[in-house]
Design a protein around this nucleic acid. Sequence first.
DNA 1: AATAATATGTCAGTCATGTTGACTTTCCAA
DNA 2: TTGGAAAGTCAACATGACTGACATATTATT
Lengths: 188, 188
Amino acid sequence: MASGRMTEAKTIGLSGGPSGIGSGIGSGGSEGLLYLTDEQLRRGAEAMFFAYRAFTADPDRILENYAYGRAHHRAIHFINRQPGLNVNALLALLGVTKQSLNRVLRTLIEDGLVEQRVGRRDKRERHLHLTEKGAALERDLSDAQRARMRSAYRQAGPAAVLGFRQVLEAMMDPDLRRFYNEGREGQP
Amino acid sequence: MASGRMTEAKTIGLSGGPSGIGSGIGSGGSEGLLYLTDEQLRRGAEAMFFAYRAFTADPDRILENYAYGRAHHRAIHFINRQPGLNVNALLALLGVTKQSLNRVLRTLIEDGLVEQRVGRRDKRERHLHLTEKGAALERDLSDAQRARMRSAYRQAGPAAVLGFRQVLEAMMDPDLRRFYNEGREGQP
DNA sequence: AATAATATGTCAGTCATGTTGACTTTCCAA
DNA sequence: TTGGAAAGTCAACATGACTGACATATTATT
């Protein structure tokens, strides 16, 4: 029982009217910059919120059947993406403390989803790998997540997808953007 | 002290090499659907994760100075967006239980950021409004968030922004998409 | 060889935010 | 007048963050 989402929670059904907050933009000139108005940006933020919720909902549902949560999913994702990475690297990607990661990692190792290998060059390091069992869960989770992504990509089309990724990339912290783009400088 | 993020947490500094997971796509024909490969979709998911983290980081930093967290931000956002909405409507937008919302809402009301007005037609309903103080915090928070969004939008350009929003919209749950689009069927 | 620094792991305590379940009060509507 | 809806509350609990302190290997430096 990891999450246990949405049982008492209400489903939608609004009532009120519109609001009208949006206003001018700081940086002068009217050269077709309507997409930069406060209102447009507020809408973008709201879209991020709603989309992210949907984006995490499918894997969360799967995780409920295990004793795992979103934190486990993230760890599994990055270990799958970069097999053999060490704990510090994973820590940096996840942006949490080692105490927090440790709890997650311990259960994954105990349950035989993740394997630690002592570093050859530096024996202090533990290199992380998914076991076959771990890889199986990873596939389950990312299949579920990809299903929604694929459907959204299809609906929006390749040009939109390109823009989607450009904006997301521009939003990231530079260090993470670097990691995100690792080994594929060519493709946009 | 709401969040208290990033003090012990590490900064980036990776080591390992690339992985190479991506594979074929389920749905046959090679009609320029390279953007739908598993690897591309995995990358999209990762981009969502990194971008969302950056997206919430700025308001989180502001919230640290108050006794508030992200949950308060979300409540304030929607009350600002749709002044006068009732508790049930807010519940549906946030997707949490009323007990969970209540805790947040109570502190916001006690601290004088949110005002409840008894419904005129239905006196059971409480319509929620931001006070001047609440509106001030909302501006602070959304200014911070918008700064990053604006910068990302500028870097990516109007065409990318259009695509960005199309993909996010396609990812949302239908009910929330309806709310998201409320009162602006015209504009894309 | 001794010492410092690094990588990892762990214990203990706290906090924010989510959850269930049970129950009350107020009020609308059939 | 009675049933149900909207709101609010109490209590208990889970998860995943956090801090601080400390232990153990192992590598790097002096």
